[in-house]
Amino acid sequence: MEPPETRAADEADEADEAGEAVEVGERVPVDGPPGEPELPDSQEISDLQLTSVSLTSRIVIALTVAAVIVGAAFHLGMVFLSIAPSNTLSQQYSTTINDYVYPEFEQNWKLFAPNPLQENDDVQARAEVLMPDGTSTTTGWVDLTALDQAQIVHNPFPSHTQQNELRRAWSFYTDSHDSQGHPVGLRGTLAQEYVLRIVAHRFGPHLNGGTVQRIQVRSADTPVGSPPWSGDSNGTSTATSYQPQPWWNVSSEDFT
């Protein structure tokens, strides 16, 4: 068997072989007895001839080839239809496609497309705490996203907990809630619980000397604004807008 691309061997290939011959001299090649050219292992292990096997065997192999071709074509067709823009075919067979692709072959390559995100959406939260004397106070807003970003700055290996957790939880939340802020279906309920639990985990059950009773979350959206060197920098506002969500009661399980 020829390794791929050796047929298209170019100067680089020849130069490589020549260089090897010079340097190999003093070193004993590990593969094969000395003096024998170093072959790719696949050539040693199996250089099988189709013509050497019986007709039955050839039929078995032919059936395998056919099955693999059909399987690969079906798989790639399904994946293609699931990631291509919605089209006549993918609309017609949406059930088949979704049944096949979800959950294990689900994919999304639209990061920064069609347009990159053009604003910094910070998730902020505050709590209503019950003080030991029986009064309730409300804490100030805590910018949880900014706390994550403080961990990202000058860190060559940011953690998923800092870079993805809040960001994706919040987009999961906004995607699964209608414009009035009501959860849509199971995903909406789960998303709300998820955001609440992230905040609860980061606040802990005790804050400012009291016990956390309720939590409110909002997003603070600040547009990046057009680049200063692009012509239309005057037209875009970079003022922060806030999307406060309702107060949510916290139970002790939310902290665990």
């Binding site: 920064f112 347009n115 996203t145 940011p158 870079q163 960001r167 692009s230």
Partner: peptide, 22 residues
């Protein structure tokens, strides 16, 4: 995408705090 068309798309990720460790 309009930002990829007008040649400014890269500017935005460079100003998103989640993606600017430096």
């Amino acid at each position: 995408g309009s930002r990829w068309e007008d040649g400014t798309a890269l500017y935005y990720p460079l100003h998103l705090a989640d993606f600017t460790p430096w």
